[in-house]
Write a protein that binds this DNA or RNA. Sequence first.
DNA 1: GTCTATACGTAGATAGAC
DNA 2: GTCTATCTACGTATAGAC
Lengths: 214, 214
Amino acid sequence: MKTRDRIIHSATELFNDQGERNITTNHIAAHLGISPGNLYYHFRNKEDIIHSIFDQYARHLSESFTPARSKEIKLDELMGYLDAIFYLMWQFRFFYANLPDILSRDELLQQKYLKAQEQLRSAVEALLKSLREGGIIAVSDQDLPDLGQTIKMVVTCWIPFQIAQAPHTRITKPLLYQGVLRVLFLLRPYVQPQISEQIQQLEQHYRQLAQIEG
Amino acid sequence: MKTRDRIIHSATELFNDQGERNITTNHIAAHLGISPGNLYYHFRNKEDIIHSIFDQYARHLSESFTPARSKEIKLDELMGYLDAIFYLMWQFRFFYANLPDILSRDELLQQKYLKAQEQLRSAVEALLKSLREGGIIAVSDQDLPDLGQTIKMVVTCWIPFQIAQAPHTRITKPLLYQGVLRVLFLLRPYVQPQISEQIQQLEQHYRQLAQIEG
DNA sequence: GTCTATACGTAGATAGAC
DNA sequence: GTCTATCTACGTATAGAC
């Protein structure tokens, strides 16, 4: 791997583990066994590194969560999306863990973030519409955006919230599945009666993943 | 006011406005027109100041949100609680805006925080039970904790989430009322049919507050 | 591309006079 | 209780050699 990519990779890892504010450029360099000077050859400054990480995240996000425009959607696909998004959030958790702080220091990043959020918002709404077309849920046009925003909020807040509750508990897969369950819980009141049994099975499935697997 | 209290007050204000990481002990002293040395006469260090602020917050929280054990509860009271809690979160928003960072630096504060969260959890559940006893909502024993946790999460994440969406927009009362509306939205699927009209009126009321008042 | 050495600024905290 | 002066540690970033 090229040094530049190794820096991005190490920085992400260290930020995730110890928080962006607690990791200096020197730490990153030391962790890679390179000199600070070398690091600054590849990046203008720390901000620049964070930008590059965010770009990676945004790329992943739009790749793994752009619901097909097909009008209908199956439950499996929904679960696939939920899995993918929670995992992505997990991979870049340092960012969400200190969002206000990180964004307040970088106007440009703020703009990029807002764009990503807007994409996410419209993707979630599209997904909900597909679920409605597919007869999975019933929700009025008026409530749909509210439901979408609520889900989006729970998804993006899930990991920082969990970190705050138990900072020394290493967050693991089961915790992500609990996040998936939380989204299912939000959807449940809107699920069509004939689907509700399937949903219950899904919940049962995820409940097992949330408790057993490490 | 005593110097000690003035320090707590100023620090809270500055932290809220500019973020705890961006405010040094020197900033606080300068803002009060006292010397850094004087500040350190009253507090051992910056952590100590944050602790004192948190103690204040926790005191307010348990004062303004300890649902009476009376089995039934009226809608007005519910709204009173929601108002009070969102306002409290607003007054100490710096804390929630960077929760993982602040807690990761202070083991003791972490423990205090967890205790407060546990109190909050049980208070929310008690409140939901009262609403159920009062015939306002219908929710199974199994779902009640999930609903409670979801509401708690939305309440505690609301302000940091909004700050991230629009950091330079000064967060104002209307935004807090939008938070109240979000909680009502979560409750809505569980509201008893005969109450749903009252809820709609409440929502209409808060919708006006959320848009008009500055 | 990578290193060593270092300059610069600043945050946290203390000493000692008043 | 409050001040001035100051120390230490550290994070960011650059210069210049290899």
